[in-house]
């Protein structure tokens, strides 16, 4: 490459962008890995040395292999069952085959899926309650004054404090011989809902209450009926604030869910961490560390997904970053 090309301002700016986007984050990660492995070497626990990056990488692969092996076992189980049933039907055409479910151990990846489903269900339930409520509060000053003390009181409560109450109430009320979803799922989900509720209610109501007065006047001059006013003016105007609330609460929800799963032994990534801790094998710490990194990465992805949704839904492109 000659000097002329290097001095080209366009080339320079591309180079700068590449540095900012790729090189600098890579340097950061490399530094982190270095410090981590140096520190890990020095920490001795009752379960052996604290895992460094390489042990974690090994365990990540091992967890994946276990998952694949478990799936193969399951597939084999169903195949055997099918063959058995086919054979019995051949002998006795009136026989109605029973399909038994495979009851193997839940793998790391199963736990990830469980946690994701739980957090999304709880989050969506919270949004379905919080956004209409927030709009109502934002539109009506009197309602706002009436509801405000309750919101302020419950907002600082860690949702984990609700967990025992939720568990008891679910056990008492959710009695069905053939439950659609397991109780443990409901417990985790409701805990997530409780912690998502407040940031969404508050942000939505503040967004609605701070709509430009001129836009409200436009609506009044046009005599838009109440529902149309909400649909055409209030909702679009407060979309940025609503998304701020949603992203805040989804972030908190993910953190809380893991803790709730650990505490209540509900299936999910939290339970995986707890089980490994109780297990106390020499690999446990590496496997927990793998989970920690995966939890962080999923949390990051969740926020990115919300941001992407916001970009698609919101007119306010400047607000979505």
């Amino acid at each position: 490459m000659n000097a002329l090309q290097l001095n080209n301002p366009q080339f320079k700016s591309i180079l700068q962008q590449a540095t900012n986007l790729i090189a600098l984050p890579l340097v950061g990660i490399a530094m982190f890995l270095l410090i981590w492995s140096m520190a890990a070497d020095r920490i001795d626990t009752s379960l052996g040395k604290f895992p460094g990056p390489s042990q974690v990488a090994t365990q990540a692969v091992a967890l994946y292999d276990e998952h694949v092996a478990e799936r193969e076992k399951a597939a084999a189980f169903y195949e055997r069952q099918e063959k058995r049933n086919a054979a019995r039907i051949a002998k006795d055409p009136t026989y109605e085959p029973k399909i038994r479910k495979y009851t193997g151990k839940e793998t790391f990846f199963d736990q990830i899926v469980t946690s994701l489903i739980t957090v999304m269900s709880g989050f969506i339930l919270a949004a379905a309650v919080a956004i209409p409520l927030g709009i109502a509060i934002g539109l009506n000053k009197k309602l706002n004054i009436a509801v405000n003390p309750i919101v302020q009181l419950f907002k600082p409560v860690s949702p984990l404090a609700w967990l025992p109450l939720v568990t008891m109430v679910v056990s008492a009320l959710y009695v069905s011989p053939d439950p659609v979803v397991p109780k443990s799922f409901l417990n985790s989900m409701i805990t997530v809902t409780l912690c998502c509720l407040w940031p969404m209610v508050i942000n939505t109501s503040v967004g609605v209450a701070s709509i430009d007065k001129d836009l409200v006047n436009v609506s009044r001059v046009l005599r838009l009926p109440a529902l149309k006013h909400v649909q055409k003016i209030v909702l679009p105007a407060s979309i940025p604030a609503i998304f701020t609330g949603m992203r805040l609460s989804l972030g908190v929800a993910w953190m809380v869910l893991i803790a709730a799963e650990m505490l209540a032994q509900n299936p999910g990534l939290g339970k995986f961490v707890w089980d490994e801790f109780q297990n106390g094998s020499s690999d446990s710490l590496s496997r927990i560390m793998t989970a920690v990194i995966v939890i962080g990465f999923i949390g990051f992805l969740l926020d990115r997904v919300m941001l992407q949704v916001q970009r698609v839904v919101s007119w306010d492109k400047a607000g979505a970053h």
Binding site: D212, D214, L215, N217, K232, P236, A237, W315, D316
Partner: peptide, 9 residues
């Protein structure tokens, strides 16, 4: 209105 007050979306 003085500042147009068009709906920005």
């Amino acid at each position: 209105f003085q500042n147009h007050s068009l709906l920005p979306w």
